[in-house]
Computed example of a mutant assay.
Amino acid sequence: MIYGGNTPFAVELRAVTKQYGAKSASVRALNGVSLGFPAGTWTAVMGPSGSGKSTLLHCATGLDRVSSGQVLLTGTDITQAPEAYLTTLRRRSIGFVFQHFNLVASLTAAQNVELPLKLAGSRVSKSDVFEALDQVGLGDRLHHRPRELSGGQQQRVAIARAMITRPAVLFADEPTGALDSQSARTVLALLKDLVRNGQTIIMVTHDPAAAAAADSVVFLSDGRVIDRLDQPTTHAVAERLARLEESC
Rank of each mutant, 00 (worst) to 15 (best):
M1Q: 14
Y3E: 15
F9N: 15
A10D: 02
V11L: 06
V11H: 00
E12L: 03
E12T: 02
L13P: 07
V16W: 11
Y20K: 05
G21H: 07
A22C: 14
A22H: 15
S24I: 12
N31Y: 02
G32T: 05
F37N: 00
P38G: 02
P38K: 00
T41K: 11
T43A: 07
V45M: 03
P48N: 13
S49G: 13
G50F: 00
G52R: 00
G52P: 01
G52K: 00
G52H: 01
S54N: 03
L56F: 08
H58Q: 09
H58G: 04
C59G: 14
A60G: 09
T61F: 08
G62P: 08
L63T: 08
D64C: 13
V66Q: 11
S67E: 06
S67I: 05
S67N: 08
S68P: 14
S68G: 15
S68N: 15
G69N: 10
Q70W: 05
V71E: 10
L73P: 08
D77E: 02
I78Q: 07
I78V: 10
T79E: 14
Q80L: 14
Q80I: 12
P82T: 03
E83S: 06
T87V: 13
T87R: 12
L89K: 10
R91P: 11
V104W: 11
A105Q: 11
T108H: 04
A110H: 02
Q111F: 05
Q111A: 12
N112V: 05
E114K: 12
L117I: 02
L117T: 02
L119T: 11
G121L: 07
G121A: 08
G121W: 06
S122N: 11
V124L: 03
K126L: 14
V129R: 03
A132I: 11
Q135S: 15
G137R: 04
R141L: 06
L142A: 00
L142R: 01
H144S: 10
R145F: 10
R147S: 15
E148K: 12
S150K: 04
G151M: 05
Q153S: 03
Q155Y: 00
Q155T: 01
V157G: 00
V157N: 00
A158M: 09
A158N: 08
I159T: 06
I159R: 03
R161S: 08
R161K: 08
A162M: 07
M163Q: 09
I164H: 12
T165H: 11
L170G: 00
F171M: 01
A172V: 06
E174Q: 02
P175V: 02
T176Q: 03
A178W: 01
R185E: 13
T186K: 12
L188G: 14
L190Y: 01
L191I: 09
L191H: 05
K192Q: 14
R196M: 15
N197E: 15
N197T: 15
I201V: 07
I201E: 01
I202Q: 00
I202H: 00
A213Y: 07
S216P: 05
F219H: 05
L220H: 07
L220Y: 05
R224L: 14
V225S: 04
Q231T: 12
P232A: 02
H235A: 14
E239A: 13
R240S: 10
L241F: 13
R243D: 13
E245R: 12
E246Q: 13
S247K: 06
C248A: 15
